[in-house]
Design a protein around this nucleic acid. Structure first.
Lengths: 216, 216
DNA sequence: GTTCTGAGATTGTGATCACATGGAGGTATG
DNA sequence: CATACCTCCATGTGATCACAATCTCAGAAC
């Protein structure tokens, strides 16, 4: 807690470390849907007692990253098709708005960074690395949305990503993707052209494409 | 977002009871912005130890209903004007969509229920009861949105309400409102007429009116 | 009057424990 | 062979405690 010497690291509190690490794993599809977790197990993984494990679990449940049965057992969520559709609609709503707000502030340096990330996505796809694919894909989006200067909106978008994390991984396995997302090129083109309607369409298409593959 | 409790059964779990009660108080403006809370104090209020109080507080922090300082102290949020604007924009985004989805399913019985709630809002306004005003106003909106069959989206809208709760109360004091929300009449009229564009506009106007008064 | 200091009180954190509940798996019974 | 039952282990819950960090505020120093 008092180790303020390290500049980049915030709090070193145990429950927060557990929370952040677990959150990242879930968001990036490191855990399959329906994966059961136990407080004692989490505690053992991170060398802490049940207390910090419980607090991390609580926060994750509150964010929808984990579900709790009536008896208190915790697991990653198994989403129904309706829920997946709804979350995709939420992504479309939120991310189109975020992209739109970021557009006036998206200069060339940002677009170039996004292009580099896009090549990393292609890498992950070629390696068939689902976790790396999800992580870099979200990084692509987050890089843009950070420019929107809308932290509450970005937090909501991340909450949606979090809820979809385990399912995204399962979906990736079914998609057998061989190429990077086609709509990323459209997003980058619209950004360069300052074309807002085009950007909105491209983002909406990108965030709902997985859904279309699921339904089709 | 909250646990799916069986309709008639009250959960006996302490931390959940604390969580729900505190959440309701915050959402409805029972606490002013910046109000500090302590775990031992919460525990005392609900006759429980620190443990359930901590868990409730964690969940509320995760939902944005409470903020945590770097030293772990918890308090209701004091929102900047930028943040208020952003949350209002989120309300507009989410609630316009929810209303739009509810429209095809909004039959006369629902509209009549909303009209009854609207008179309760007028009541609260006349009595100058801020908490009752906020609660009935949210009930008006929630009654409509429940018909949208979009639980994740509704949960997000509630999260926004939650974050604005304490500030809403403070705003209400400044507004010195004497009449019920004018746009509620437009919402009801659009519902009756099945007028989607009109409904979207009315909802958008309603959820951003407080903001306009703040800025103006 | 203002600022610094330091001691005491307050507060969050994490570990541990007793307890009740629920689930899994084996056994008996049809 | 299937199903009901029962026992034991695993798991979440809540209370309590020791501890460290932090806040508060009275009093001293300038």
């Amino acid at each position: 807690m008092t180790l303020t010497a390290r500049p980049t690291e915030a709090t070193t509190v145990a429950h927060d470390r557990v929370f952040r690490h677990l959150r990242s794993r879930i968001m990036h599809g490191d855990l399959p849907p329906g994966q059961a977790l136990t407080l004692r197990g989490i505690g053992k993984d991170y060398n802490v007692s049940m207390t910090p494990a419980r607090e991390a679990a609580r926060r994750l449940v509150a964010e929808g990253a984990l579900t709790m049965s009536s008896s208190g057992r915790i697991a990653t969520p198994e989403l129904s098709n309706d829920r997946i559709e709804e979350l995709a609609a939420l992504r479309a709503l939120l991310e189109v708005e975020l992209a739109s707000r970021a557009l006036p502030r998206a200069h060339m340096a940002l677009i170039e960074r996004m292009q580099i990330i896009n090549t990393a996505i292609a890498d992950a796809v070629q390696r068939g690395d689902a976790v790396a694919y999800i992580r870099t894909n979200l990084e692509f989006h987050r890089t843009l949305y950070l420019r929107a200067q809308a932290p509450a909106m970005l937090a909501m978008a991340e909450t949606v990503w979090l809820q979809m994390g385990p399912t995204m991984r399962a979906l990736y396995g079914r998609l057998r993707r061989t190429e990077p997302p086609q709509f990323h090129r459209l997003i980058l083109a619209a950004l360069k052209a300052g074309d807002e309607p085009g950007l909105r369409l491209a983002v909406r298409s990108d965030v709902t494409q997985g859904l279309r593959m699921l339904a089709g």
